[in-house]
């Protein structure tokens, strides 16, 4: 009985994701199951229609910039947090996870109100800033987790052997926390690439991201091109996760 329940719940978890794959190869203008015919026309539409292509490009730019910013700021923050006293570190730690706890609808409305006065609605900088803030917690959490496992006497050793603080950082600290930094960067990229609620409010008509384009695709024209876009997003998630698993291995080992 237990095994039956476990299988049923597992199917419930993965089935809707898998159902998209056959639909994306269908030959009909509407969604029907089982899909009729086989064609790549919806993938062709995705790559040739300017609306879809531009949305994908915008998302890549925004996610890359947000991931870089969040990774740099988050890694520095994690390094700083570890040097603070217990109480201050705890308080700031709570601040850093706050963007994860506050419902995105509230963050979205708050950003919309403030960003519109700063001229950051409907353009890439606004999206990058918003997504950097949303991704920051993941970097801080991942780097902090790895830092707890490092024996920091290696940094003292490097310093006592004559390394400058900067050398010690590049040659000792950074390689030691590398898995956490990479995990944080992957999380940050995917957080931005997948983010919909904030983008719905602040992307405007000029900086449409892929999720926003999919949103209108799902709401207003249920065409299989959304399925093709979904499959490509699935592929990208798999690719990013594989990349992370490959990169996180310590080069020394």
């Amino acid at each position: 009985m237990l095994s039956g329940a476990v299988v049923a719940v597992s199917v419930y978890l993965v089935l809707p994701t898998l159902a998209i794959i056959p639909i994306s190869f269908s030959d009909t203008d509407f969604i029907i199951f089982p899909p009729q015919g086989f064609s790549l026309r919806w993938y062709e539409t995705f790559f040739t229609q300017p609306a879809w292509r531009n949305a994908a490009i915008t998302s890549f730019i925004v996610a890359t910039l947000a991931a870089v910013l969040a990774t740099v700021l988050g890694t520095l923050a994690a390094l700083g947090l570890a040097r603070l006293g217990q109480r201050l570190a705890r308080g700031l730690g709570a601040l850093f996870i706050l963007p994860l706890i506050v419902p995105t609808i509230i963050t979205a409305v708050a950003f919309y109100g403030t960003f519109s006065r700063l001229g950051m609605v409907g353009n890439v900088p606004g999206l990058v800033l918003a997504h950097t803030i949303l991704a920051l917690p993941f970097v801080v959490i991942n780097v902090s987790a790895v830092m707890q496992k490092v024996d920091w006497r290696i940094v003292d050793a490097a310093r006592s052997l004559g390394a400058t603080p900067l050398q010690a950082f590049w040659k000792v600290t950074l390689p030691a926390i590398r898995p956490g930094v990479l995990a944080g960067a992957v999380f940050a990229f995917l957080t931005s690439f997948d983010e919909i609620v904030i983008a719905l409010f602040i992307s405007g008509a000029r900086a449409v991201t892929l999720p926003v384009q999919m949103w209108s695709g799902i709401r207003f024209e249920i065409s299989p091109v959304v399925a093709a876009a979904s499959c490509l997003l699935l592929l990208m998630s798999c690719f990013m996760l594989t990349l992370y698993w490959l990169l996180r291995k310590d080069p020394v080992q």
Binding site: L15, P16, T17, L18, A19, I20, L190, F193, D194, I196, P211, M214, W215, I218, V226, A227, S230, L233, L234, S237, L241
Partner: peptide
């Protein structure tokens, strides 16, 4: 790890 919209669409 799957996009929320992908799952909704599914």
């Amino acid at each position: 790890w799957t996009n929320l919209l992908v799952r909704s669409y599914g």
